[in-house]
Write a protein that binds this DNA or RNA. Structure first.
Lengths: 156, 156
DNA sequence: ATTGAAATATGTTCGTA
DNA sequence: TACGAACATATTTCAAT
């Protein structure tokens, strides 16, 4: 179990290390060490501290979904007719693998989701046969992403 | 330069390897090899092939923004008064580090962005002093994420 | 596609400054 | 914090199947 501080102080060397690894999680620590000009052991120690602080949530291989035929991303605003049904609706959304994000939001909708699908037909199937059939879902509004121009993490 | 095929076939072993690494990019290949029951060299070769296919977009350390004090995520729908200004507006959005995603979308808005900020005051600052001041931006609609329930990649 | 083995490089720990 | 040294593992390549 990680201890997560409210806020953590990181210096320039920490930032250099993290920026390298945010860009390529498999970059050898020794390579970063040589570039920065400190020892591998020092980086190791800093990374352990950063990990213990909870700042490092993990590491991931990033898959290019287009290569698997997933070329259409869309955002769907969902109106739920009873707020009490929300947890159950989210549970059902988790069962839909194409749902990548799900947020309770302020504003018109109860929930906003991001989905990734193969094409418009697949999108229609997800809307009509998966999302709309969830109990409590009264209406949806769909926004297809024609083109994603930015995709990144918070900058250090 | 990677060659990106339109669609790629992957078998169960590829999926096991990728699922492991999507979960932890630094997991040693040999560890995965022992778990699956094939040699490290075989995994190495498969990973090379997967990389060449373009399926592997890269790897990342994932930062927990809450530890840096970023606790408010929001989606902002942006109305642009002239479609011709879109590329310039996107260019300016890229200059705002808090903007994590930016999509051209169908529907009411020209652009939908996802931003991460420290608190509501920071959000207001970004809206009023950064986003709204971009030339061509006529109006925005903000949806604060009260709680993110799902955050994942496409499943293999 | 897969293997084992060999060579090279990296990860990890620890005593010390 | 940082270092170097020592040890344990992992990566990478390759000839053989």
């Amino acid at each position: 179990m990680k201890i997560i501080n409210e806020t953590v102080e990181i210096d320039g060397i920490d930032k250099e290390i993290l920026r390298s690894l945010m860009n390529d999680a498999r970059k050898p620590v020794l390579e970063i060490a040589r570039k920065i000009g400190i020892s591998g052991a020092a980086i190791h120690q800093r990374l352990r501290k950063l990990d213990e602080s909870g700042l490092i949530a993990g590491s991931k291989f990033v898959i290019n979904p287009k290569v698997l035929g997933y070329s259409t991303m869309a955002f769907i605003g969902i109106y739920l007719d009873k707020a009490m049904r929300n947890p159950e609706a989210v549970k059902q959304l988790k069962e839909i693998p194409e749902v990548l994000e799900c947020h309770y939001t302020t504003g018109n909708w109860s929930i906003l989701i991001k989905i990734l699908c193969k094409d418009n037909e697949h999108l229609m199937y997800l809307l009509n046969d998966k999302v709309q059939t969830i109990e409590g879902v009264s209406r949806t509004e769909t926004f297809i992403s024609l083109n994603q121009q930015i995709d990144r993490q918070i900058q250090l």
